[in-house]
Structures are given as structure tokens and as C-alpha cells.
Amino acid sequence: MRVGIDAFPLSGRIAGIGRYVLEIMRALDACMPHADFFLYSPEPLVVEMPSARWHLRVEGTRKASSYVWLKRTAGEMAREDGVQVFWATRTILPARTHAFRTVSTVHDLNYRIFPESMPYATLWAHRLWFARDVRRADAVVTNSQGTADRLRAMVGVQTDAVARPGVAEVFGPQAPEAVASRLSALGVRNPYFLAVGTVEPRKNLPALIEAFVSLKKSGEIPDHQLLIAGSRGWRGRRLHALLNEAERHGVRWLGFVSDEDLAGLYAGARAFVFPSHYEGFGIPAAEARVCGAPVIATDLPELREAAGEGALFVPPTVEGLRGALLHPPTEPPMGEVPDWQTAAQVMVEQFERLA
């Protein structure tokens, strides 16, 4: 079998969709030992190929939106390579797909639910093509049942399968001495709350910071810090100004941290806090709980899937978060965490059915 993949999410610092694509790719290499994979991107990738059966096709330098490149160029390259199935990792399909079948992965409906949080080019690409492309895809896979339910209600498209994210092997129970060593290297002291995510509006970090600072000012959590780990995002100028102002009250932005450091941060946290307005699944909540962190999260169906039973679910308001920080859970959530092998097997079933 010859499988084409939109690999653009792997061309920069690996975030949510990029992590999802990369981990499933690694599992696919074991699940499909006789397949060849063709990765299409307008820019070089920052990851190593899983094996010699993975072929990278970089077409020049991206000058326009990566979605325009996908529409104009990726499909032509896939036809030249004779792929049988094309995996649209970012939902949007190439313009002409008559030569191969298509699997579209839907990660969220952010363009409908929280459009003001999206970069301009991404928002308009989704407004132009999202609904049309999921309707014409040969198979649609979502990353959560919550996303599947929203897709059916808001776009009228039934999902063919759900492939929930797993967690990387580095995340799991951490030895206390290893946690202490990593926290020391990062200059972190206990106790602290931890938030993780790209610094952008949908993550609702201003409400979390306001809730935390108000408790610090009132003397109710005098010794706690609030640590925020994540890369710079978009529309973040106001938020970074707020972070600078809140630093004197114990708020600290760590920027991007490695998975190994992140595992230690999860394990040492008084609680992991996920205050997002909206998520398609919420991989950090799953990572935090397998590392042993109590979890506070916005009350969304998708985050209930990720965080598991025993997390504290609250409204994404200053008051809701304030109450949760004052009385956080003391134990990590329970329940089985999905794994990447299961997610990859879902994709294999779709690829084989269509090919």
C-alpha cells in the first residue's frame, strides 16, 4: 500500500496536531510493515523518519498559506507518487483527489466555536474548505467522541471512527529523586500549580492568572507558584504583558520545555490546571494524570474524555478557577488512558478499507 500524508504539522516546533501525527506515524510503521508512506510538506520537517519506507517530499519554500499549498501542490505530488490513500492530517483535502481515496482527521471545530483564537489564514482556510472537505472525504476520523458529536450536530457529518490520542512513553509514574532533580535544574520549588499549552487566547490563561493572583494577594495560598509551560503562540502580546506583571506574584512562564522536563513538572505539581475555553481532546490532561498529577479542567465533554474520572471540572471563569485552586483535588484521576497503538490501528483499518 502507498499512503500519502499531509506532513506540514511536523515542519515546525511540534505542538498538538504535530504530536498526534508523529506518534501515529511511529505506530503505523510497526502496524503496516509492507506499506510505503509519502510525507508532503512545503517546508523541511524537524523529525526523523521512522524507517526507510517513509519518503519525504518537500516542494520548494512556502510563499502562501500552507493550506493554499496543500490545495494546489500536495494532491499533484500524491498522484505522481501513485498513493492509494491520502491522510489529511489537518482535515483539509487537496483540491483534486480523483486519483486516490482520502481520510480526513478532525481535531476540533475551533473555527465555529472559538474563531477569535485562530490565526487569520487558518481561520479563513477552515471557513472556505472545512465543511466541504469533510463531506467529500471518503472517511472521517475524529480524535474524541466529543468532537464526533459536535461534527454531527454542527456540520451534519457522521464520523467513521474515533482515534483518541495516547501519551508518549516518557509520561508515566516518575521516581521522586528524578522529579526532584528535574525541578532543581529548572529552578522550580514546591508547591506549584502547572498549566501547559501554547500561549494563545483559547487557552484562557488570563482567567487562570487572575484567579491565582487574587488568591496570592488575599494570602490564601502564600507559598504557591503558578508555572506555565508552552511555546509562544498568536495574539499573545497582551497575555505576555500580563505574565510580566504577574511575575512578582509567583507566576512564571517557562516557555517550551522538553518532554522529560514536562513529565517531572507534571509529577511534582500540586495540581495540573487546564482552563481552556475549548479543546478537541486535551493531550496534556492525559499526560498529567499518568504522571500522577491531580487535574483541574474546564467542564467540556472532550476534556472529560482526556482527564478521566476524578478530575475536578469547573467553568472557565475566574471564580470557577479560584475555587478550584483554593480546594484542588488530592489524587490523580482514574481510568484507562488510550494508547497510540490503538489510535494507529484505527487509521490502519480506514486505510485498508479504502485501498
Rank of each mutant, 00 (worst) to 15 (best):
V155G: 01
A99Y: 06
A125V: 05
T159N: 06
L22H: 08
D149L: 12
R202S: 06
A286R: 01
V314D: 03
R353F: 07
G75L: 03
V85I: 10
R136W: 09
D339L: 09
P173N: 08
T198Q: 12
V58G: 03
L208R: 02
V141F: 01
F274V: 06
F256A: 11
V314E: 05
D81M: 06
A139D: 03
G16L: 03
E23N: 15
A207W: 00
T61F: 11
D223M: 13
S65Y: 04
F193P: 00
L325D: 00
L39F: 08
V295H: 02
M1W: 05
A229R: 02
V83T: 04
V346G: 05
I221E: 03
A269V: 12
D160S: 12
P173V: 10
E349T: 14
G233Y: 03
P275K: 06
A139P: 01
A7P: 00
T89W: 00
E48H: 13
A15V: 15
V179L: 09
L39C: 07
T89S: 14
D259V: 10
L28T: 04
P191Q: 11
Y278G: 03
G280M: 05
A30Y: 10
F171K: 02
S11I: 07
E319L: 13
G197N: 06
T198I: 12
L265M: 11
